[in-house]
Design a protein around this nucleic acid. Structure first.
Length: 497
RNA sequence: GGGCCGCUAGCUCAAUUGGCAGAGCAACUGACUCUUAAUCAGUGGGUUGGGGGUUCGAUUCCCUCGCGGCUCACCA
């Protein structure tokens, strides 16, 4: 036996001893009759009836008074106190609890609900059974687990001892299921499109590459679901959405994860202003359903999600926050000079799109209250339809809450000739060295050539939305197992002597 | 990738100018029949992230590697 510390070794020995005495430390099943919460909620009725219950849970605390031992167990619904007395549980049962069980073990107890003198809801225990032996000691009962690296790497421990972490992930699940319900109720059809794609597109990002042996084919992990979903509109599904992972081969940050969850939806016979109404109603509804309020606190700021949200042209927002009016500089060189003059560093040789992006990056942190920035330049938006009165601008918006971009939407480009040109521009840029442009997707253009209805489309970064609605400062706090560099092994051989 | 910060017992954290590596919880032994961070008495537990260097002596100073956090860059 290697790599085990003193406490682990002791617990493993106990486990072996139990086995020798004919007690399986990992028995098949439990006879649970009540969740701890059910017992607490109807305690007085159960106590009055003197009804026996069987509850289960992880042993979280033990207070040994000699002939009386108090213990707390915790299941998925909450905690309850156990009152274990020599004259009701018996000397043998009490000794089992004191000597053979450890904090962290999963146990089953049979007993009668009651209140102690201080009024604490408890179970007067008649029988204790071990359901699963815990070999690892729990973190500090008061401080819990704080080390960020361990919390991410061993999320199971984090969830075990930090209730607020569990709450975040329960709310995340709720947000997603309520979002599904909201869309289903409005006639949207949920679909699944390929994750492995021969050509990736629909966003500006580098892809992960993989390989299909049997087909002898290079495949990419999708960076967006966009182009497949819009094929479905060509096929006649008028309202469609997908919730799933996208993958982008990029660095991480508090707002970026290489794999993240995206909801994309497309609605035929709608445009981007219809989508704005949908977004503000959806997000506000989710906040009310999950948090009970349209007001959220995020990074110390009070945010009001009540519709309508303001709609501000991108140009105006950037002008207001950086002092640069990019439309006043039609040439890349003059815009670059203006950006530099505003005190923003730029990459030498940056394209116009990159410069505007840079200006937006400097604007984004100031967008605390929910806002739609509308009307993006066409060079930033290869799949968005141009505005009728100004072909250099598209009907596109991004929305921001709490200083981060949460979603992106536009009136979809359905003109195959225009789309063909945009793809060509993207390809030209790629040849000029920009790896984050879209590949030419011939089949997609072919689909458009059959005719796609006028359509409004939307993408929402689910992780970021969850960040805002749960006041989580980092995207890693809303992803159960965030990506980490590989680490050496945790346990050695667990051979039992 | 750059900059800054961090890594000490199972967990949470100390350690003066470079001078015997400590505390609380957890664990172990004992006392205690209504406690709830139970209490009281006692005991064990360390490759101070790894490697190298300076020094009589390194948790402390230097170099290097690893992992993480923040931040900038990259990137929606």
């Amino acid at each position: 036996m290697r790599d085990l510390n003193e406490q682990q070794e002791l617990r493993l020995e106990k486990s072996g001893r139990l086995r020798q005495n004919g007690i399986d430390p990992y028995p098949r099943r439990s006879r649970r009759t009540h969740a701890t919460r059910e017992v607490v909620d109807s305690l007085d009725d159960l106590a009055a009836a003197g009804q026996e219950v069987i509850v289960v849970g992880r042993l979280r605390a033990r207070r040994d008074m000699g002939r009386t031992v108090f213990a707390d167990i915790e299941d998925g619904t909450g905690r309850i106190q156990l009152l274990c007395r020599a004259n009701t549980l018996g000397a043998e049962g009490l000794e089992f609890l004191k000597s053979d069980l450890d904090l962290g073990d999963i146990v089953e107890v049979r007993g009668v609900p009651m209140r102690t003198r201080t009024g604490e809801p408890s179970v007067d225990v008649r029988e204790v059974r071990l359901l699963a032996k815990s070999l690892n000691p729990l973190p500090d009962k008061w401080h819990g687990l704080e080390d960020v690296e361990t919390r991410y790497r061993q999320r199971y421990v984090d969830l075990m001892v930090n209730p607020e972490v569990r709450d975040v992930f329960l709310r995340r699940a709720r947000i997603i299921s309520e979002m599904r319900r909201y869309l289903d109720d409005r006639g949207f059809v949920e679909v699944e499109t390929p994750v492995l794609q021969p050509i990736y597109g629909g966003a500006a990002a580098r892809a992960f590459t993989t390989y299909h042996n049997a087909l002898d084919q290079t495949l990419y992990l999708r960076i967006a679901t966009e182009l497949y979903l819009k094929r479905l509109l060509v096929g006649g599904i008028e309202r469609v959405y997908e919730i799933g992972k996208d993958f982008r081969n990029e660095g991480t940050s508090t707002k970026h994860s290489p794999e993240f969850t995206m909801m994309e939806l497309y609605q035929a016979y709608a445009d981007y202003s219809d989508i704005m109404v949908l977004v503000e109603n959806l997000v506000c509804t989710l906040a009310q359903q999950v948090n009970g309020s349209a007001q959220v606190r995020f990074r110390g700021q009070e945010i009001d999600l009540t519709p309508p949200w303001s709609r501000v042209p991108l140009r105006d927002a950037i002008l207001q926050h950086t002092g640069v009016d990019y439309e006043a500089y039609p040439e890349t060189e003059s815009l670059a000079a203006a950006v530099r003059e505003a005190g923003i560093e730029t990459r030498p040789g940056a394209t116009r799109a990159e410069l505007i992006d840079e200006l937006l990056d400097n604007t984004e942190p100031r967008l605390i209250q929910p806002v739609f920035l509308i009307d993006y330049p066409v060079e930033l938006s290869p799949f968005a339809k141009r505005k009728p009165d100004n072909p250099s601008v598209t009907e596109r918006f991004e929305f921001f809450i709490g200083g981060i971009e949460v979603g992106n939407a536009f009136t979809e480009l359905n003109d195959p000739v225009d789309q063909d040109e945009r793809f060509r521009e993207q390809v030209a840029e790629r040849e000029a060295g920009n790896e984050e442009t879209s590949q030419y997707d011939e089949d997609y253009v072919n689909a458009l050539m059959y005719g796609m209805p006028p359509t409004g489309g939307l993408g929402i970064g689910i992780d970021r939305l969850v960040m805002v609605l749960t006041d989580s400062p980092s995207i890693r706090d809303v992803i159960l197992f965030p990506h980490m560099r590989a680490r050496h092994r945790l346990v050695g051989q667990l051979s039992c002597s």
